[in-house]
Amino acid sequence: MSDTQTARPVSTLALPLAALGAGLIFGLGLVISDMINPAKVLNFLDVAGTWDPSLAFVMGGAMGVTALGYRLILPRGKPLFAGSFSLPTARQLDPRLIGGAALFGAGWGLAGFCPGPALSAAALGMGEVYIFLIAMLAGMGGWRWLVK
């Protein structure tokens, strides 16, 4: 996939450095929006209780920028540091997509963590975060091991 992308002489450090920057900005967004806080996420999901609609505004802000940015970038044909855009090619709504989303949603509603905020929260030094992260990585690895 990506090992054919190094045909032109871009520094091999460009991809990781660009990704580091992207991770930093993403994490900053999670902290500023307080999406790193599971209580905030659970209250968004608690429509019948202590509802906090903030998460919808995070999604709205993120999607507004992303939809606009993608429209400007994708017509350029290729990214700065790689040979091509890696875009998802699957189109069908299969049981795996729906079943996976249902399992993910259930886990998200149990603890209030999805993968991004949980990884960012690793910086806070709380035991609960590490318990969740170890289980999450085990779940990821377990599924990949089962399927491959």
């Binding site: 399992l103 993910f104 603890a111 289980a135 999450m136 377990g142 990949r144």
Partner: peptide
């Protein structure tokens, strides 16, 4: 929750 999030997202 971690197991569900991990397996479900993959």
């Amino acid at each position: 929750a971690g197991l569900l999030v991990g397996a479900g997202t993959q």
